[in-house]
Computed example of a mutant assay.
Amino acid sequence: MVRLIAIDMDGTLLGPDHTISKKNKEAILEAQSRGIEVVIATGRSFSEAYYPVTDEGLTVPFICLNGAEVRKNDGELLSATYLAESEIDKIVSILEEQTIDYQLFIGKTVYTKSIEDQIDTFVQLALAANQVPPIDDIRAEVMNRVEIGLVKEVPSLAPIIEKHKQEINKIFGTSFNKIHLDNARQALKSITGLAVSSSGAGNLEITNINAQKGIALERLAKSKGIAMENVMAIGDNYNDLSMLKVAGHSVAMGNAPQEIKDACKSVTTTNEFDGVGTAIESALRLKI
């Protein structure tokens, strides 16, 4: 029987407009009322994840940055995993050689050379799910983060790397050129100690090999005395694979690539049509 549910955000819990539907919210609250633990497992930083969730009145812990951070529902840091300092220059060199733009995720802050790149990241995630992105809403959301200091635009990332080299949780690369992305992915995989995944066709998510959603989820479940066979994971993309593979009940979103669907035990509806709520309701009804 399910005792813990891990839910991805973009393309999963959040609809195309980056909000949580009434059905998804009510399903999560119902699960919690029955004593089931619910955790958000996202590639976003804590600050990017926290507000869309808590604005809907939901109280949950967070696996952030693809597992590089685990935080309590109030933001208290439980664990953090950083990219090895010795690998940062290699990663940056590969990305720059392939002319791939990148962002640095350091704790609660995202550093970028272009706010437009940050906006385009979320636009591309929607397009990857074959949905029409609400660009004005996405822009307003990102600009609000800029205003409160959660996203910072800088002329160069080099000084940030020099100052925070021991504190980088994730490097996020974006490009419209598939060949450049594939070349970078292959080169990055040759570096021992890295996990290289993606949350959409036009990006690369680079973390420490020990910073993956599946690893963080296993540790969280163990800390609560919950066997993995009693864990449900719901996701839509390649950065979700590690947790989908270790969960006893794996659910792919209807908007997920076929490879993700093939890796899961079941497939729910799309994020546009309350896929998370539908999956949770089914689990509660069937008492799986």
Rank of each mutant, 00 (worst) to 15 (best):
L14R: 03
N208M: 03
T42C: 06
L181S: 02
N271Q: 04
I5Y: 05
R44L: 02
M9F: 05
G275K: 08
Q98A: 10
A195T: 08
D17K: 09
G149P: 02
D274L: 02
C264W: 10
L104T: 00
N183T: 01
T192D: 15
I226P: 06
T99A: 10
G107K: 06
E69N: 12
G202V: 09
D8G: 03
K224Q: 13
F62V: 03
A184H: 04
R145Q: 14
P155W: 10
V267T: 15
N230L: 02
T99Y: 11
T270E: 04
S114P: 01
A221C: 08
D55F: 12
E153N: 00
R185Q: 11
A6Q: 02
A140P: 00
E218A: 12
I135S: 03
T12C: 10
A158W: 09
A256P: 10
H249R: 11
N73C: 12
S198I: 01
N169V: 01
I148R: 15
H249C: 05
E167C: 05
T109D: 01
R139T: 15
D182L: 14
A84N: 13
P159N: 07
V53Y: 09
S197I: 01
S33N: 11
P155T: 07
L29H: 01
V132G: 01
S114W: 07
R34V: 04
I91C: 00
M143I: 03
F172G: 00
K170T: 10
R34D: 01
V151W: 00
S21A: 05
E162T: 10
P61S: 07
D10E: 08
I40D: 02
G214R: 08
V267W: 09
A84V: 03
E141V: 04
V123N: 11
A128N: 12
I179H: 07
L95V: 10
N210G: 08
D17S: 08
E153D: 00
T112H: 00
L77E: 07
I209K: 15
A158D: 14
L204G: 02
L95C: 10
I160T: 09
E116P: 00
T42M: 08
T268S: 15
K90S: 13
T109I: 15
Q98G: 00
Y238W: 12
V70S: 10
T121E: 09
S47K: 12
A247Q: 06
G149C: 01
V39A: 08
G277Y: 12
V39N: 06
I226N: 07
I179T: 13
I171V: 12
A233C: 13
A84L: 14
S79G: 03
N130V: 03
I206C: 04
K224L: 15
A158V: 13
S175F: 12
V146P: 00
K265Q: 15
Q131M: 13
R139A: 14
D55I: 08
N210R: 13
F122N: 08
I5S: 06
V246S: 12
R219K: 15
K287I: 09
S21Y: 04
I260A: 06
D55R: 15
K165N: 06
T109R: 09
I161L: 07
A252P: 05
K25F: 06
L241P: 04
